[in-house]
Design a protein around this nucleic acid. Structure first.
Lengths: 224, 224
DNA sequence: GTCGATCAGACCTCGGATGTTTCCCGTCCA
DNA sequence: TGGACGGGAAACATCCGAGGTCTGATCGAC
């Protein structure tokens, strides 16, 4: 292709060059189209594409703006893509990556987490143990991992793991959580991780996290 | 928005549901637009967006096809996004993630790599040592890391790291490689990693890899 | 059987018209 | 004075229809 793809690259270039900064508003469709030398329709295709990957933020009746461009923010768009192969072989590979990152994040968190967050995590575990529906439990699980990783202090890592967690959790829902023991085990391991964080023991947090993720990994393998 | 976004979701749904499989050809623009109940222009915006993230593959004069949907393939689209903030603070966080993943990948590679690949890696080191231009050296560096990680056997991990390496390397070019010692050190560390791989020593490979990435990380911090 | 020209199909680009949403501002009423 | 209301302008959303261009396949000549 030429025109539309070219427009995508030129808008990207305007951002990279600093002509457009995060939060900036783009010229009106008509003006920008004229400036780039193409029709509004073609420009709209480019804008739509950039909007899907969250580089641009379009607001009807207002205007088109450059997004925050934060790495962790943009990474969120990745979840859309990962949705496309939940339940396939690649989930195994994704889980393998997660088994590498999550323990590392837990270890980092053990060095930086504050008491308040530890308390919050404990409450989350209690809520998970008392959860009644599967959806509720899964939501607690997601939230737990999200907060542990966020405590690592690396926003990029946090978003990446959050994205990776989505598909694997969805698989879990899809295949159904039939074993009550799996639930108990999950909560127990979560508590162990929190204890390690509270004790500020990175190695212990790393190990429990590894055990936890590897457990899920193994469970999936058994199902296959 | 409604119509276009809805179209994106519905096409995605057609893929997730299995109605459309990788390699399949979509109905003609006109037909699909009618089926989804929207105009061709709006559908084109949706297709363009899905095309940017490599879910669809459009070939003029032929038709629109569903891409391979391989996780590592789709992940490649991420490099586009990461281009947008090379040289910013977030590079530090990206590098931190890389320092987690790359050693793990090296350790995995040490367990699976074959002799032929070891020989190829040695040749790559030799070529890097003999490189004359900065661009050439950087290309060798990229290639080296790419092949080591691919030897890990996890395609998803390989693509992810390849994507992460791009920005950090570009930063290196941008700031300029002024110190000849940095070049020598890079090559020496590469050789050490290869030696560890050849000896099938995962721990050693992991350690050297950690040292290598941490070195780059520290170097960037010093520059800042 | 091979090669090249022709043709149909599919995507590409354009321009304009109309609908919808949002924001801003001037006005009116306590 | 201050807040609520309403009108209008601005900007995006959607649609339609008409050429243009590229690709792949068919068919005829050699």
């Amino acid at each position: 292709m030429a025109v539309t793809d070219d427009a995508i690259l030129r808008v990207k270039e305007m951002i990279v060059s600093g002509e457009l900064k995060p939060g900036d508003r783009l010229p009106r469709e008509a003006d920008l189209a004229e400036r780039l030398g193409l029709s509004r329709n073609s420009l709209r295709e480019a804008v739509k594409a950039l909007s899907l990957v969250r580089v641009l933020d379009v607001r009807q009746g207002d205007g088109t703006y450059v997004s925050s461009l934060r790495a962790d923010d943009l990474l969120g768009a990745l979840s859309f893509v990962l949705d496309l192969h939940s339940g396939e072989d690649s989930v195994q590979e994704v889980l393998e990556v997660r088994r590498i990152l999550e323990p590392a994040a837990a270890a980092m968190a053990a060095q930086r987490i504050d008491d308040q967050e530890v308390i919050a995590l404990r409450e989350l575990c209690d809520a998970a143990a008392a959860a009644e529906s599967v959806e509720e439990l899964v939501e607690h699980d997601l939230e737990f991992h999200r907060r542990v990783v966020q405590a690592s202090g690396n926003a990029y890592l946090a978003q990446l793991l959050d994205t990776l967690a989505g598909p694997t959790v969805r698989v879990r829902i899809w295949r159904g959580i039939t074993q009550a023991s799996a639930v108990d085990r999950t909560v127990a391991e979560h508590r162990a991780i929190v204890d390690a964080l509270a004790a500020r023991q990175p190695d212990l947090a790393r190990s429990w996290s590894t055990v936890h993720v590897a457990g899920v990994e193994q469970w999936l393998k058994d199902l296959a």
